[in-house]
Amino acid sequence: MEGFTNNAITTHSLPDLRTLPTEPISLAYRTYHIAATLMLVIPLLGVLSALRFNPWLSLPTFLQSAYLYVFAAVVILSVGYLIYAYLACVRIRYSLREHDLTLKKGVICKQVICQPMLRIQHVEIKQGPIDRFAGLAKLHVYSAGGAAHTFSIPGLEQVTAEKLRAYILEHKDLNAG
């Protein structure tokens, strides 16, 4: 019973998610995320145009007339997404406390997600080809809450991601619950 305390706690004296100091993810993430999106959209538009204008295969007329609409839809959606990504990427912030990890994100719909350390089942660092080129990494933290609720921080510098993983793995509460 040594060191045991049982002081009364009021809700207002609890550690608060609102006043939590957070740090941003890597600034490079926005650039590379936008670049990655463009690398997907531009070839897609190219394939669409190639199908429409190639001299070997002529499309049925209804597909020919649909081309413009599909092209316009892809462009509008991509531009919309790029604007959103431009605004959203810098709003992703995270925070590490003694007992939990927190992620704040969102432009129109703001989200604060908090993952207690002692419920973490395993940690994973994921790097796509672009991430590897940029020296970035994505940290995935799994709990028993299921795959749909995987806690993940994108756009971390590789060193930071590895440090975070090491911190989580060395945490004394890990696998305790």
Partner: peptide, 26 residues
Amino acid sequence: KLQQVSIEQSLLMTKRKLASVKFVLA
């Protein structure tokens, strides 16, 4: 028994000082 918790607020909800809470359990 909590596994994870998240708080969500749209712009309109922020204006009205409202929020939704999601408790993730196993």
